[in-house]
Simulated assay, not measured.
Amino acid sequence: MKRYYYLIGIQFLGFRYHGWQKQPKLKTIHERIDKTLKFILGDVKFKTLGASRTDAMVSALEAGVELFIDETPIENTEDFLKLLNVNLPSDIKAISIAQVNKKFNIIQDVDFKEYRYLFSFPSKNHPFCSAFMANFQSPLDIEIMKEGARLFEGRHYFRSYCARPSEQTDFEREVFLCELIPNTEFTASFFPEKSYILKVSGKGFMRYQVRLMMGALVLLGKGEIDLDFIKNSLKPGSEQLVRYIAPASGLHLHKLSFDFQKSK
């Protein structure tokens, strides 16, 4: 049996979804994509695999799904992309499609992922912001939060920044970049005058890792923990608990890059 392989780039607003992964009786990104593909492809056998399992209410500017089709190739990828977008919900968009070879692995061939966390403080935001910007209604020391963010860069032990790990979870991860900057990229008439972005990039992240990192920075900005807490939490064998997980709606997968040399 001949099989054909395609990489589809997607964007989505995750505010009304229960994350990426399919779950019984719940609306998820993966479930909606598969439902749309089933409608388009009819009786053609296919399956899909995503590059990232985003949490409920998390969005993406660049995400990816690999499409495996048995026996019947896509004749015109440009027309297929248009047809896919006509039938997808308005808060999910296919932005690209390309055929890949059978050696390509959408999970193992990720070069890096960049997440961004958009937030403001201390005044309450306009309700329209709630889909993609977190709001902390207390004073925050942004300068010390910037110092704290830099502590996450490099290879560290991230057990304190992972929820519900398995016995096989490797807690040693490398963060390529972690910085907190003023938001000048995302604008809208209803946005607050000032807002901020936490940029985090690495090859892979554990469940809730970025949200727990952001949670620690919020606690730092409020004066409830200090820089030494973060330093100690990243030491091998640390069992310190970060007791605050930042809200999901401020987080989005900003960039997803693949190393196509691996599959040549």
Rank of each mutant, 00 (worst) to 15 (best):
E167T: 15
N101E: 11
S120P: 04
T187I: 13
F68T: 13
K38L: 08
I69Y: 04
I69Q: 07
K203F: 09
K93L: 15
A248M: 04
N85D: 07
S195N: 03
F171V: 08
F119N: 02
G237V: 05
I74A: 05
I142T: 09
Q108A: 13
K93T: 15
K25C: 08
K235I: 08
C178T: 11
E143S: 13
T187W: 10
N183Y: 06
K35L: 11
V110H: 03
I97L: 06
L251A: 03
E239M: 12
F260E: 10
Q168V: 15
K264R: 13
Q240F: 08
E147R: 11
A188R: 15
D109C: 10
T169E: 05
Y196P: 06
K22S: 09
Y5A: 05
F205S: 00
I107Y: 08
R207H: 09
S257W: 14
N135W: 08
I106L: 10
R53S: 12
S160R: 02
E167I: 14
L180C: 04
S160K: 03
N183K: 01
I74M: 06
E31V: 12
E172Y: 12
F112S: 12
S123V: 14
P89S: 07
M133I: 09
G64F: 08
G154I: 01
R243M: 13
R32Q: 14
E224N: 09
D109M: 13
A163H: 14
I92M: 04
S238Y: 01
Q240D: 11
F112C: 06
F46D: 00
A51K: 00
Y117S: 01
D111S: 15
